[in-house]
Design a protein around this nucleic acid. Structure first.
Lengths: 190, 190
DNA sequence: TCCATTTCTTGACATAAATCAAGAAAACAT
DNA sequence: ATGTTTTCTTGATTTATGTCAAGAAATGGA
């Protein structure tokens, strides 16, 4: 819970009162390895902070799984569209390891708007940050080679490479597992 | 202004009162061909609806211009991060043709929050839609070939191909102008 | 600990797409 | 209209990356 509070604070720059109130709505929850946080088609009714563990967000298309994102400890996870508009989720979200979360239900989330002054600002900041992150990702595909995308991601997420199958990282970066393997090998011998 | 009102309505599902109030804050504005809506480094202080014309959003990196997006009549344009958080803009936004806009200043935009009930919901919907659009774009780079990205974009934006240099579309889709030219040629003879 | 399963690596080869260059076509300015 | 500039097309070639396949390594379960 310590880590969660600190992250809430760091993300949203809250005062003590608000921090406590917000945190009180988040309930601890565990997902076993290979179990699902969310299935495509269902409505995403929760927003969670990953306390420990790893979730993979993916979609299956033509029998191929496309990994859209891998979310790790210290980050929030939800499917924004589904959570905000109560539409069916488009992504599968599966735990790659036993994962502990702090989760707020959609119901309680709605209450924050009444209870926290300027909650809408916090909410806006959250979504906008997610937007900016995706903007960078699009840009990386327009302006970088597979190798450059690898380098950048690796520099920011070294630990991840020992924790999950590399094929998922490859997919997320838009390259085949073989290409990632070769690039990685090349980097090591540099 | 007709088109603008209809689009506002369609985007945000407003009642007559709110619609009129919101629309009243948007002022007509014109940008000549090749002039800039926004320069990187400056703060983006406006949110605009494109009534007519075309804007190109791009960044120059290693002497190469990467076109991130091309925004056309009927859509809104701003740099979300810069507009929301008053940070320096990262993108250049230039008119590819004489462009007429309806623009709301950041200042007036802030007023909407007091004046329109549930404005925060409208705002959230707006940003979330932008987010979902980018999510699709990332996905297109993970799961589609250049040819498939072309086909999809072309099917949705046929007119654009006669209105602006194709090199910009190519960049936006993450391919060289030559590749786009070849794909296009191939499609025509199919 | 051992076996089964999954994942990773590597080589050979195929393919998509980039680059370079030159001429054609189109757009623009005078 | 004419010349100038920009953009587009096309061919030749190179490069990056994908695919397939097989063995090696790692992982996970009994």
């Amino acid at each position: 819970m310590q880590k969660f509070n600190q992250s809430l604070q760091a993300y949203f720059n809250l005062n003590e009162n608000d921090l406590v109130k917000i945190a009180s709505y988040f309930k601890s929850e565990t997902i076993e390895k290979d179990d699902y946080f969310l299935h495509a088609g269902n409505q995403c009714k929760k927003l969670s902070f990953i306390n420990d563990g790893i979730l993979r967000i993916y979609m299956t298309i033509d029998r191929k799984e496309i990994t859209q994102w891998i979310s790790t400890s210290g980050y929030f996870v939800t499917e924004i569209s589904s959570f905000m508009f109560e539409t069916p989720a488009r992504w599968e979200m599966q735990a790659l390891s036993k994962t502990t979360l702090f989760t707020i239900s959609k119901e309680n989330y709605e209450r924050l708007n009444q209870e926290i002054e300027n909650w809408h600002l916090i909410e806006k900041a959250f979504i906008s940050k997610c937007f900016a992150m995706l903007e960078d990702r699009v840009f990386s595909h327009l302006s970088m080679t597979a190798e450059e995308r690898f380098e950048f991601f690796f520099s920011q997420n070294k630990a991840l490479f020992n924790e999950i199958p590399q094929q998922y990282i490859a997919s997320m970066l838009g390259m085949s597992p073989e290409t990632l393997s070769r690039i990685r090998n090349k980097q090591l011998t540099k």
